[in-house]
């Protein structure tokens, strides 16, 4: 009897522990569908629904005009827009255009940098989401394969 009870207790404890471990991952609620989207239009619908998207000069998207190595392209997105909740980086011609989403709290400056892969010359977009609208800026990046110029 004592044995049985302790085994049941152990199982229950194990299940609870497993649930606790997986909990933080669920809280983050990754935008899986948007990352799987194959074109820019459907991923923007997935991410922003019906929110208005407008072109803006207030976003600085720093990417090279010509990237010699498409596997490592530095990207910096910064903006002075108030109340930024999210910054997204999108590369139109990539198999899955959505590269990265940054969810910002008010404790962070709207200025993020990373390095992404660009498969072929493409329009690169930076999208900045506030509580009521989405701002966008675009820039074309040419990728030279081989990297020797010429």
């Amino acid at each position: 009897m004592t044995m049985k009870r302790s085994r049941r207790w152990f199982l229950r404890a194990a299940v609870t522990a497993a649930a606790l471990v997986t909990l933080p991952v669920r809280v983050l609620a990754r935008a899986t569908a948007a990352f799987k989207a194959k074109d820019t239009d459907s991923l923007m619908r997935e991410l922003f629904g019906d929110m208005p998207i407008e072109a803006s000069d207030a976003i600085t998207l720093k990417v090279p005009d010509i990237a010699e190595n498409g596997a490592v392209v530095p990207v910096t997105v910064s903006t002075d827009i108030e109340g930024v909740q999210q910054i997204c980086v999108v590369v139109d011609n990539n198999p899955n255009p959505l590269s990265a989403i940054f969810n910002l709290s008010e404790h962070c400056v709207a200025d993020v940098s990373t390095r992404i892969k660009i498969g072929d010359s493409s329009i690169t977009r930076a999208l900045v989401k506030t509580s009521d609208r989405v701002y966008m800026t675009m820039k074309e990046v040419k990728v030279t394969i081989g990297g020797c110029g010429g």
């Binding site: 392209v73 590369v91 899955n96 959505l98 990265a100 989403i101 709290s105 200025d111 990373t114 660009i118």
Partner: peptide, 30 residues
Amino acid sequence: VCKHNGKEVMTAEWGASVSKDPYFAFTVRN
């Protein structure tokens, strides 16, 4: 997930198109 003194200040969701050995820079207030 980025934390400042234990408080979450930024999270990022990435796809496979972020470069190998990712570099990531951000700025924290206060």
